[in-house]
Nucleic acid binder design. Sequence first.
DNA 1: CCGGATCCGAATCGATACTG
DNA 2: CAGTATCGATTCGGATCCGG
Lengths: 230, 230
Amino acid sequence: MAARSYGQYCGVTTAVELIGERWAMLIVRDLLVGPRRYTDLKQGLPRIPTNILSARLKELQEGGLVRRVPLMNCGLVYELTSYGRALEPVVLALGRWGFQAMGEPEDGDIVTGASLTMALRTAFRPDAADDAEYELHVGDVALRASVNGGQLMVAQIAPPAPPVDGRIPDGEPDAVIVAGPGIRRLIAGEITPAEAIEQEELDVVRGEVAHLESFARTFHIAPLKDPVIV
Amino acid sequence: MAARSYGQYCGVTTAVELIGERWAMLIVRDLLVGPRRYTDLKQGLPRIPTNILSARLKELQEGGLVRRVPLMNCGLVYELTSYGRALEPVVLALGRWGFQAMGEPEDGDIVTGASLTMALRTAFRPDAADDAEYELHVGDVALRASVNGGQLMVAQIAPPAPPVDGRIPDGEPDAVIVAGPGIRRLIAGEITPAEAIEQEELDVVRGEVAHLESFARTFHIAPLKDPVIV
DNA sequence: CCGGATCCGAATCGATACTG
DNA sequence: CAGTATCGATTCGGATCCGG
């Protein structure tokens, strides 16, 4: 362990020693959505080797970021401690930055419930947010995003399984948006909502199309200024 | 490369693929202070193997984060592109989070100019900042921190070498603070300035002691609330 | 000295198989 | 469901070497 230390007395260094190992940050990303069982994590991170998942969970527990909680009925879940949850600003900042470099999806890239949830949180602009209920489908992930008074709540819905907790928002959504990876271009502001529909990047299958404007204002990550000069 | 991909179309994932490798974030941290030559980086990261430094710099260039700039006179420097500089919020968030877990320094831990500079930026609170000039010594690192109208500028000074550029702030500092690692406890608010001096964690060798109060207000990272309950 | 490249043993990661 | 065990493929760390 001392051999793996960076040998500096510094906050950044300490942080990287705790969550810098491969896969660790993605486990935290998924746990930021909510407590998850081992199998859920494995499913949300399909390419993670099971021994690595197991090793990371152990390290994250030793670091005090994650707790292992036996469930009353059956099984057990991993959840973030308050110290682990304090990583949210880091994950959001990382997501915002990485969003700029995403480009088009590679072959075999997937979108998971957790990644889409954090992407929405990443792109959320409380000050520009109109109150609304969106249902968003990307690939086979379905989310309900509730915007209320500058607060965002995201819940995973239906396919494939019913949500664990009963907190599915009731009532009809204002808009049901079915999108592909092209939704990135909408959030980046590379295309307008009208163009997005025209180019068939996405579709509003229920509700008024006007809500898509609202969506695009609410969820937005401005691209970097031209990197050519400076 | 495809084998090293996390296989997800997600901002966090993309970011981690670009700067998640060992040492990469620390190289960025150092470059956020300013352009550096290969040898400077190696000196600021004493434990990095030279082949790794070389590999990372190559990867960071391919990722568009870092540029290699030949100097007119002699040698060359590495500097962040605007895309690389956009990582500053990430590094600051990481530093702020990691600060909580720093504890006491391990044997052999060092403090470098870059790490201390970023630590000050991390802890800086523009809204609570009084205008002042501080000279801060920790170990054999010496910094000049200028606070002006909610703006912070940090420059490395004297020992061992004169600064590269001529931008050493002129005039006497309001306070010269000589500290050890115990300065962490002051910034965390675990001890008051008076206690810090009393316990010999640090010393104000020039200027009025009152400026230390100002320093502690200006540079502060509040600890997490008790993590026992939640 | 600067800016690396090369070589090699040690540690880590990835893939798959297997178990209570 | 929740992991261990195993093993080959990579990567990392440490040291040395090399051309300007």
